[in-house]
Design a protein around this nucleic acid. Structure first.
Lengths: 214, 214
DNA sequence: CGGACTCTTGAGACTAATCAAACGTCGTGG
DNA sequence: CCACGACGTTTGATTAGTCTCAAGAGTCCG
């Protein structure tokens, strides 16, 4: 399911809310955020898009994009027109099954995140967010630098900027992270996990396939 | 995609966390809840299953059920074995596309709900929950009786029982609902919508299909 | 009638929001 | 090189919202 690959600059608005869906993208490298504007006018970051993620399948169904996609770093994206993907899916039902499996995995991830947001404290929410980013970046045990501002973290987990700052201060004092200007370094992943122990088991789920059902 | 139909009694544990997925169900009538047990031991209700909902697609992918399903009223369920559904999906890719569309719609619903839970006050959360149930029951303008205890509402939206009681008291005083023993009557849907005005636009999304993409 | 479950209400503690001010860091242009 | 503005972060004081603990009242059922 390859398509043409293109590279986009940082801070590029790939898609806006209300756009008509025309293409489906797949992240080859880089980061992007998926956000929406709340009725109150505040933007909310729904999810972070990393390598391997697919953009636009959900919105294809609803007829118009419900979310805005903005690149955060330079990004390489494969893309394919929606019509072409549907044609492929009709011809080869492995494609359709793959789409189903992808959507189902996303469902699990969102559901887990929902639990974190509705039942966690500020410390737990931020710890889990950072842990999930670590998991998904697949960087082994090296220190991970998360390119999110504190304002963006707040928009992602629904906390105000001052409270994010205070909470990161707590995590810093516990030796779990270091704060920088515009990004956060994860220093001690085990400590993070320990802090969020009540939420463990809700880390991003990346496995699963139809293979075992065949 | 019909299968055998069976009727289950209320409070019947259809599926438990950790069960191996074998069948996919579709709700013909009645209510069920989809829940999970948090690391803390507290159960959380993830979603309510109403007429038309499908049970088990997400879990089929992950290899084991991540959720428990318990009937709330008597329920009629169509079911089909997972293997058979996969066979159908392989033979007729409209089935596979339908599954993808269903999963994508669920995604939108969960995402909206996530926004409500992370950005709403207790009053807004409960108002939106009740509104969503109204929408999904498709009962026109008649009074809707929601068969949930306050404890269950708390488990669904992440509030404690005392606070749910107080919040429902507020909604009752505003003339939006009436509380009963074990259920809640929605008296004035417009007033509910007005109370949750900051969250409107996040009501359950029920439309959308592949039709417009074909 | 008793028991189990559900709901209500109150007081105090804790968490996070709000409002506000100041500080740091980075890039830019004089 | 410095001054400046834009942006990001830190901190403080106060207030609003929710949790916790606890006691009691209401409803249903055997």
């Amino acid at each position: 399911m390859a398509g043409q690959t293109r590279v986009y600059p940082p801070k590029f608005a790939l898609l806006r809310e209300g756009d008509l869906p025309t293409r489906i993208y797949r992240v080859v490298s880089g980061w992007a955020s998926c956000s929406r504007t709340l009725p109150s006018g505040e933007p909310q970051i729904i999810s972070l898009l990393l390598k391997g993620d697919v953009i636009g399948v959900t919105d294809m169904i609803s007829g118009s994009y419900r979310h805005s996609i903005e690149t955060r770093t330079a990004m390489a994206l494969q893309s394919i027109s929606q019509a072409q993907l549907l044609r492929l899916a009709r011809e080869d039902n492995n494609v359709a099954l793959w789409l189903t499996a992808y959507a189902a995995r996303e469902n699990l991830r969102i559901t887990n995140w929902l639990t974190v947001l509705s039942h966690g404290t500020a410390v737990e929410k931020i710890a889990i967010l950072l842990m999930n980013v670590c998991e998904r970046m697949e960087l082994g045990s090296r220190m991970v630098r998360v390119p999110l501002t504190q304002k963006e973290i707040g928009q992602h987990i629904g906390l105000t900027l001052p409270h994010v700052s205070r909470t990161l201060g707590t995590l810093r004092r516990l030796g779990a992270v270091q704060t920088r200007h515009g990004c956060i370094d994860i220093v001690d992943r085990d400590r993070l996990a320990q802090i969020a122990v009540n939420m463990t088991g809700l880390l991003d789920y990346r496995g699963g396939s139809f293979a075992q059902c065949a």
